[in-house]
């Protein structure tokens, strides 16, 4: 096997992991951190993708459209938290049912509003050459996006006042309230943050994954598995689990078949959960 092929596979395994991590971070906050099983996570991604699509097609540059999409999805998440999720904290099955219902509503709304096909915006037609191979510049760019996003989120949740208060409100909302933290408001903000991240994912992936009503389904299963494998140290765990699962599946798919890559993803998930029933970070002594 030539060296340039190995290099390309290595790079693309990193981009695959980045795509997975970008699509998972929102769920890492909502499910990993807050413990809310949000089955509508995929539809939040779809919501962000369509928002970015509509904004771009109205003439706004794509980079700004991505930010708008993240903000709009965050706002939508805040409303969902106020109206639905807030009443269901600590009621796992009810949350499951409510968010699943929400995902159905969002899916069908997208079909009704946008129809089944909407013109996409496409990827920039530029690529990087490595020996005999070319790799899309946009996919490489997503690698950078994933790194920046993870660092920014880590900083937000550990170094800022909001981050500390947010984690306090989630860990023990009564004690947090006793010392004067408005747990309710903070939880709304955290849910909105997770939703915004999902919306950002849909928007930033839009060039490579065209917006369709059913697009969320492709992401939601792997995102959940990644967060479950990650375990209690949510953020570091998600990066680790996403990096491992995403790149392993990619490498197997590159040397064998895509089906085999998928099988490896799920077998690896099963194997890791057999070894670490509470996630790979269960015994870590880190905060995030």
């Amino acid at each position: 096997m030539e060296i340039d092929y190995l290099l390309v596979v290595l790079l693309s395994s990193l981009t695959s992991a980045s795509v997975l991590i970008i699509a998972t971070l929102g769920l890492a906050v909502i499910f990993g951190l807050m413990g809310v099983v949000n089955l509508a996570h995929g539809e939040f991604i779809m919501f962000g993708a369509y928002t970015a699509l509509v904004v771009t097609r109205s003439g706004v540059p794509f980079s700004i459209a991505v930010i708008v999409a993240a903000l709009v999805t965050a706002l939508f998440g805040a409303i969902v938290e106020r109206v639905i999720i807030r009443r269901l904290y600590g009621r796992l099955l009810d949350t499951l049912l409510a968010t699943w219902g929400l995902s159905l509503v969002l899916y069908q709304s997208a079909v009704l509003i946008f129809g089944s096909v909407t013109p996409g915006i496409g990827m920039p037609q530029s690529n990087v050459r490595i020996g005999d191979y070319t790799i899309s510049s946009y996919m490489l760019f997503l690698l950078g996006v994933a790194i920046v996003l993870v660092l920014a989120l880590y900083w937000l949740l550990t170094k800022t006042g909001y981050g500390i208060v947010a984690r306090a409100a989630i860990q023990d909302s009564e004690t947090a309230s006793a010392i004067g933290i408005e747990s309710g408001r903070i939880n709304t903000m955290t849910f909105a943050l997770g939703s915004g991240l999902a919306g950002f994912a849909g928007a930033i992936l839009l060039p490579a994954v065209p917006a369709t009503p059913g697009m969320g389904f492709a992401f939601v299963i792997k995102a959940f598995l990644t967060v479950v494998v990650a375990g209690p140290v949510t953020l570091t765990g998600t990066v680790l689990a996403g990096g491992l699962l995403g790149s392993a599946a990619n490498i197997v798919a590159s040397f064998w078949t895509t089906v085999a890559g998928n099988i490896v993803f799920f077998m690896l998930t099963m194997g890791l959960l057999r070894l670490y029933p509470n996630g790979i970070t269960a015994r870590w002594n880190r905060k995030l």
Binding site: S16, M139, L205, V209, A218, S254, T258, N262
Partner: peptide
Amino acid sequence: PLTVTDYAPTIQ
């Protein structure tokens, strides 16, 4: 599989 969204391996 119909749920794959990242085609980098196929393209390589």
